[in-house]
Computed example of a mutant assay.
Amino acid sequence: MTTSPNTASNTDFLLAIEDLTVSFDGFKAVNELNLYVDREEIRVIIGPNGAGKTTVLDLICGKTRATSGSIRFHNRELTRLAEHEIVWAGVGRKFQNPTIYENLTVAENLVVSYPKGRSVFGSLGFRQDIAVRTRVEEVAEAVFLRDRLDDMAGILSHGQKQWLEIGMLLIQEPELIMLDEPVAGMSVRERQQTGELLARICQGRSMLIIEHDMDFVRSIAHKVTVMHQGKILVEGSMDKVHDDPRVKEVYLGH
């Protein structure tokens, strides 16, 4: 992509955030932020606690309302949409802690998220035809849970619960997936598998990820954005970010 970010609203960037600001009692958690994400890009946002990383995801998904600025997805303004409308537009969000239905099976968790049903009762009540079952099995295979479909979600390991929630996003076929610290609490092997998973599911969609594990970031990121005090400090490859003295001062050095 060689298009200048200054004209991003009129280009084919999947996500274009411009002059985005949100204030809480006068404190600007995000301050005139400009961020542009390409199609099929894995963008990782890093930075110290309080930098505004999670707030950016909250703003994109509609959980928090912007004070000013623009968030355009496929050139459609998101700041005026309700949370469920943003989901329907093709944006999926996974929070830091897994939010799954522990008293349902793995398969039922995936069915709940199937686009035909927009609630637990609606999803479990509609007829689960061959297309639904096939899609559930495909997603379970993709997230390493094909052999756990009939198990209760509550007995899964922490890492498997993280994978299940990613599967619950995947079954909705979003074009943008946002993940908040997806490998937190995982074993080394689970982190490796998650890296493989994200690289695979990025085909045909983009990902916006918040992460603190620098080895994991290096293994998956197409581009890294460093935030500090609600603004972008620097962007680029992991090598560029790692070698930047400003990043070392405010983040990596600590």
Rank of each mutant, 00 (worst) to 15 (best):
N103A: 05
E102C: 05
D147W: 06
S113R: 09
E108H: 05
Y114K: 03
L110W: 11
T99K: 15
A142V: 07
L124T: 13
K94E: 03
V143W: 01
V106G: 00
V106C: 01
E108L: 03
L104V: 07
E102R: 10
L104C: 07
N109T: 04
N103Q: 14
V106N: 00
A89G: 01
F144M: 12
G90L: 02
N109V: 01
D150R: 08
L149W: 06
D151W: 01
D150C: 08
A89N: 05
A89H: 10
E137Y: 06
L145N: 04
I130E: 13
Q128D: 02
T105G: 00
V111S: 10
K116N: 07
A142C: 07
L124V: 08
G117P: 03
L145G: 06
V106D: 00
V91P: 03
E102I: 14
Q96F: 07
G92A: 15
G125E: 00
R135E: 15
I100G: 04
T99F: 00
D151R: 11
R93A: 04
D150P: 00
Q96H: 09
A107N: 10
D129T: 10
S113Y: 06
N109H: 04
L104M: 15
D151I: 01
G92R: 08
E138M: 06
V132H: 04
N97E: 14
V120L: 14
V111H: 09
N103T: 13
V112W: 12
R146W: 02
S113A: 15
L145H: 02
